[in-house]
Each structure stands twice: as C-alpha cells, then as structure tokens.
Simulated scan of single mutants.
Amino acid sequence: MAIEHPPRKRARLRHSMFFALSLLACMTNAQAAGPSEVASADRATWPHALNSPAAFDRASRAEILAFGHELALSEAVDDAALAQRLKLKQIDRASVDKIRARFWQRLSANYRLASRACAPRETFCQPAADTAALRALALAFNAAPDNAYAAWRGDAARFHRIYLDEQLRLAALFPRTSSEIDTYSADEVDGSELPDRQFLLTFDDGPSAAGGNTDKLLRVLREHRLDATFFVLGQSLQQQVAANPKLSTAQRYAGMCVASHGWEHQSHSRWPQWQDSVLRSAALIKAQAGPLYAPLFRPPYGQRLADSGGFFREHGQRVVLWGIDSQDWNAKMTPTDMQGRLLSLMLLWRHGTILFHDIHDKARIALPWVLQHTRGAGVHWVDCKDYPARG
C-alpha cells in the first residue's frame, strides 16, 4: 500500500530529492574532468641552471618543441582512439580542434619570443617563422640533440604526453562540462593575456583555521615580498570570523587581494543557488576584507554557465580562471612533483595565472623552490592589485 504524505511533507520530500539530485549532478559534473594520471616533471634532468633570461629561453624552446611534438602526434589519432585514450565515452571534436589550434598559436608566439636573442648555433633554436613551420619542427623533434639532453628528452616526452592528455580531456568535455580550458567571452580572463614572463599567483578554497596553512603560506609570501589573489569560500570565511572575532580579515590578508570562490565549493554550472552563492560571498568578503576586496569570481572546478556573463557584468564581477594548474590538491602529487610540473609549465607557456590552494601545505613548500630556480631568469610576479588590468 502506498503511503500518503500531507502536502507540506510531500513538498519537503520533493525539495530534498531535488537537492540530492542536484548535488549528485554537481558532483558528477565536477569529477568528470578529473584525469586518471597527472603530469610531473623531473627538472634534475635538465643540464643547465635557469639563472639568466637566455637560459630561461633555451629551456623554454626545448619545452615548446617537446610539447609540440606530442600535440602534433595527437592530431593523427581518430575520435574513437582519442576517446579511449582519454577514458571518455565521447568527445566534442570541435572543442578539441579549437583548443589544439589555440595551443599552436600560443606555442608559435612563445617560440618566437624565446628565439629572439639566439646566439649562433644555439641549441633548440632552428627558425620557425609561423605556426606551420613550428608544427613541422616539433613533429621532427623525436630525439635529444646530443647526450647532454638525453635524460631530459626522455622525461619531457612522458611529462608532455600526460599533460597534453589532461588538457585534451578538458577540451573533449567542453562545453558539456565547463572548465578553465576555454573562456566564454572577453569578459573572462585566464592569464593568457599577460605579457611575456609575467605570472600571477592565486590560491583557492581558504581560509583555513587560524594558525593553519593559510597563515603559514601568508608568512612565506611576505618573506619573499610577494602578493597573491586569495579566492575564498564565503562559508569558510564566515566560520573563521565567528571562531576568531578578534582576528581581522583585512589584517590577516594585509598586502594581498581577496576575492570570491563562491559560498560553497560546488559546481556553479548546475547548482540552482549559484547566483546567491556569488552575491552572498562577495558581500561578506567586501565587508570583512575592506580595501583588499577584489570584485572577481573564480568558479569552483572552473565550472559556470555559458550564458552567465550578463549576470556577472550586472553585478560588477569578473570571472577569473587559470592557465597553470599546480595540482597541489591532488593526493598523487608531492611537493617535489609540483615543483617540476610548475617550472616546466612556466617554461612552456611563458606567462599566466597559476592555481594553488592555500588549504593544502604543498604550495608553501614548492613555491620557494620555484622562486630560487627562476632567480635571474627575468620572471616577473604580477601585483595582484594590477590584475586584471582596469579599463
């Protein structure tokens, strides 16, 4: 016999079921983009220090050719084989082709930048005047130029093959599953528009409890005279304010920029309350952080609605994505793994927004190593207060 529920109870049950299904959809959507393997590089295989702009450029050219080689090889893989390789049931071919084309454009521009000051017979410096020429050069780059680079070439082949699959997986799912792999409009920024050798530090998911990872990381940043944008969760900030009423958010983040990561860490592409999440978190952060508040929103998992641009413009918010994922949130990655990954991707892309998470301890360990190994290389760390550029 069916159980009859009064109307109010039936309404509550429908709401509970709807919320559960929505949450499940968000979780499925959020987890869909996760790769089964993540790339880490062994920078000890590179035979030179990166202690000058010329040294940075040489290593940059090498990484561009190594990644370009894997990218060119992937273009010969048909859709069925690519779906199997990426462990997906289907792929969005148009999205994959669009991202590949964008990669080639960026690689070509970066290779020209890295080749401007080549000395005669400089390593990894064959001319490539355009994208087609670079593609041909990269496709032929299947061995180290001499024994000094043999260990690096073997490690780079593995690293870039896995890293490319990370990116192609995101592209194959887009736009069905949105992510940082592409922007929906010029209103959204991901760091690819930054000048050469300029990088922005960003940290998501905080704040942690007082005295925890967030505060430890803040000390490291200040020791190195760096700043960063912290994309905080409204719910976490509210909890920390309640637990530590005498701890000023503005004082805690002094010298930094504080922006929104939403109220809760849920996908904002399918969560019915996503607009409330954006507005509530922004209002709380502005009230607590004062002049440190930046009217920016970073969607959890990079997931947002394709037609949400009007909402963000109306409320004076701007979506900020990223181009270099440290993978510090991934249990498979150690701080050492992160170090090699970060440096290789900085050499490959030459500029961009770096994603970290201050609730984890890995960035505090890995970042000083990256700073040490790029000292003298001409790398510039962008002031968070200057990004995105106003006007």
Score class of each variant (00 low, 15 high):
L201I: 03
D182G: 09
P195E: 06
A210S: 09
Q275M: 11
R219C: 12
A209V: 15
G191Y: 04
V220I: 10
A287H: 04
A210W: 02
K246D: 15
S267D: 12
H265G: 09
G255P: 06
G262F: 08
R222G: 01
L233V: 08
I181H: 10
S192I: 02
L217T: 07
E180Y: 14
L237D: 04
R197D: 10
E188S: 00
F230N: 09
K216N: 14
L226F: 04
P245Q: 01
V241P: 00
N213D: 12
R225V: 07
R280K: 15
N244I: 03
C257R: 11
Y253K: 01
S192V: 10
R219V: 15
S267I: 13
C257H: 00
Q275Y: 07
A243C: 00
N213F: 13
T177W: 12
T214A: 13
L226K: 02
G255E: 02
S178R: 13
H261A: 06
A250D: 01
N213C: 07
L201P: 02
W263Q: 04
A186F: 06
K246E: 15
K216G: 14
E264P: 00
G191T: 07
Q251G: 14
S248D: 14
I181T: 11
E193M: 05
Q238F: 03
A186T: 13
S208A: 15
V232C: 13
F203N: 07
G191I: 07
R252V: 10
M256K: 00
R197L: 14
G211Q: 05
S192R: 14
G211E: 04
E193H: 04
A289F: 01
D182K: 11
Y184N: 14
L247G: 03
G191M: 08
Q235E: 14
P272R: 06
S260A: 06
S260I: 05
Q235N: 14
A210H: 09
R280Q: 15
V220F: 01
H265A: 04
P245L: 12
W263A: 03
V220W: 05
A242I: 00
P175Q: 11
G191W: 01
G191L: 06
P175C: 08
I181S: 11
V258E: 06
Q275N: 09
S208I: 11
S281C: 13
G206L: 08
Q273A: 15
L226W: 03
R270E: 15
G212R: 14
V189C: 02
S277P: 01
R270T: 15
E264Y: 09
S178V: 13
L233T: 10
L217N: 04
D215Y: 07
A228W: 06
A289S: 03
T202A: 06
G262Q: 05
V189T: 10
Q266P: 00
G255L: 02
